[in-house]
């Protein structure tokens, strides 16, 4: 029986590697922005809740 061909992943070119790196950087920034937005919402809601007579409950 013939040996199955060994899978060789395609080597990315320099240009492709650079593009992938830039994409990943933007993705990281987007995730970071999302975390900051949720944090800001939480802080504002907590401070607004604390300012209410019943503590927001």
């Amino acid at each position: 029986m013939a040996e199955p061909e060994k899978f060789e992943p395609r080597r990315l070119t320099e240009e492709e590697l650079k593009a992938r790196k830039r994409r990943n950087l933007w993705l990281a920034l987007a995730l970071g922005a999302f975390v900051v937005a949720v944090l800001a919402i939480t802080m504002i809601k907590l401070s607004q809740g604390a300012a209410m007579p019943d503590g927001g409950f």
Binding site: E16, K18, R22, R23
Partner: peptide, 8 residues
């Protein structure tokens, strides 16, 4: 072709 941030 490799995608750039501009493509997204």
């Amino acid at each position: 072709r490799p995608a750039t941030a501009g493509d997204y």
